[in-house]
Amino acid sequence: DIAKAIIDLAVYGKAQNRSYERLALFVDTIGPRLSGSKNLDTAIKYMHNALKENGLENVHLEPVKIPHWERGEESAMMVEPRCHNLAILGLGNSIATPPEGITAEILVVTSFDELHARAPEAKGKIVVYNEPYISYGETVQYRSQGAVEAAKAGAVASLIRSIASFSINSPHTGWQYYRSDVPRIPTACISVEDAEMMARMSSKGMKIVVNLKMEAKTYPDASSFNTVGEIVGSKYPEQVVLVSGHLDSWDVGQGAMDDGGGAFISWEALSLIKNLGLRPKRTLRLVLWTGEEQGGVGANQYYQLHKVNISNFDIVMESDEGTFMPTGLAFTGSDKARSIMREVMQLLQPINVTAVYENGGGTDVDYWVQDGVPGASLLDDITKYFWFHHSNGDTMTVQDPNQMNLCAAVWTVVSYVIADMEEMLPR
């Protein structure tokens, strides 16, 4: 009755709401946790102590280097045809403007294709991207590449419509990449509302002028840590089932959803197993990544350090797409492994979360998945996920304790059973 015992404890028993309560204390006390920040250092120390106090084994920190970028003060004021304060958030890795800012006319485009077609018009202007939101994966390229494409056309800055499926004038930040062969220009995201307004004005032939000020600064890479705790396996301790989420977040909101929820249900999995006095045959390893938002930076260094043991990694699991109502498990692996995962998910019939989907993994564990290690990620109802993602709205208020209980039950049953089965998943 192990699966039932886990579900009962997580959803109805003494552990119900524990991951939510732990997360609330964590994010309310520490706040957002940007890569390279003191807040992130504090968060890692906090979790290091918390995992030890929880009685996990081999609790330790693994040093890594991560980007250190700070946004500073920033503003964008539309000065023609009228004065209007634009809601902005500078994009991570952006350079600063001069202290007096950049004042330039706006060119509004809806796509890279339109920008390329109108490239002669972009010279000396601030390019505003008013790209429609299709899906995160498709639309996020405007955030990550917008500055480079605008600079190639001779623009002096870029303002990018937030990658958001809903907006209440809320800018959403994120990481953007420069190219060594293209001049660096300042870049920030703006709200959907302001992007659409400027598009309407532009389509009517109005001249729009904006003053953009950004103090953003990039420092040398900072020292940080991946945080690790384990329940050591009873029979095959060298073999590992890895469960994970990331501790770092953006510097807005509280990072409660991205990825506080994922990190804390991963911790909860080990806590529940300990509470039940269980010890799986192979080691259950919790890793709380650092520097995920800048492209899985801490996870990449973890992979480089540990890939020599790749044959002992049974499965790598990451929850980084919300901890709302769970709908199933995304899985990447061989057909044989998938058949086994389908059987494992049948254990979750009592809470009606049995589906196995394609494309399991995540930014932090894909290094392993690409090398053939089976990968899994929690799927949940992400209808509202991109309303809050990377914005000031990512707070504890969007989390739901009952939904986190269910997510924790799924995460725990899957990780425990795989860790305890006699054989590793076939590759």
Binding site: I2, K4, K336, S339, E343, V344, Q346, V413, V417, E423
Partner: peptide, 24 residues
């Protein structure tokens, strides 16, 4: 049955199914 690297026989899928059902 295929043998695994450590010389033990790998379980058949039916055996794996039975093992997983044991956690219900």
């Amino acid at each position: 049955r295929p043998q695994s690297k450590n010389g033990r026989y790998r379980q058949t899928f039916e055996e794996v199914k039975r093992e997983i059902a044991g956690y219900k």
